[in-house]
Amino acid sequence: MSVPVRILLLAGAVWTFIYVFRCIRKDKMKDDESFYWIISAGVLVLLAVFPEIITELAGLLGVESAVNLVFLIVIFMLILKVFFMDRKLAALRHQTTEVIEKTAIEKLNEEKKNKED
């Protein structure tokens, strides 16, 4: 992995760290929500500081250019993130649906009760 790529990785990771910790401090992000970003930034730092890990691994897997393996890892992490976000989104949608349905029913039940009184 070339030095510029390593610097880029490191800069990206450091920037992510700073941003995430600022969010936590300002209470814009809960601890468990920041977990993913801290871990992934940590992985990038690790790869930038110890490029031997990636070169070794690339040799083992038969990936010609070490930097391609970095891309592969990042893509994999992103796909995972999208998958879990999609699941979360579905769960949220179902919760909203239920709230909307139940409010409508309660409103009608109340109206009926008022009519009877």
Binding site: T96, I100, E101, T103, A104, K107, L108, E111, K112
Partner: peptide
């Protein structure tokens, strides 16, 4: 009419 009024489009 008896109305079930959904507050958003479901």
């Amino acid at each position: 009419y008896p109305l079930l009024d959904l507050s958003a489009n479901l």
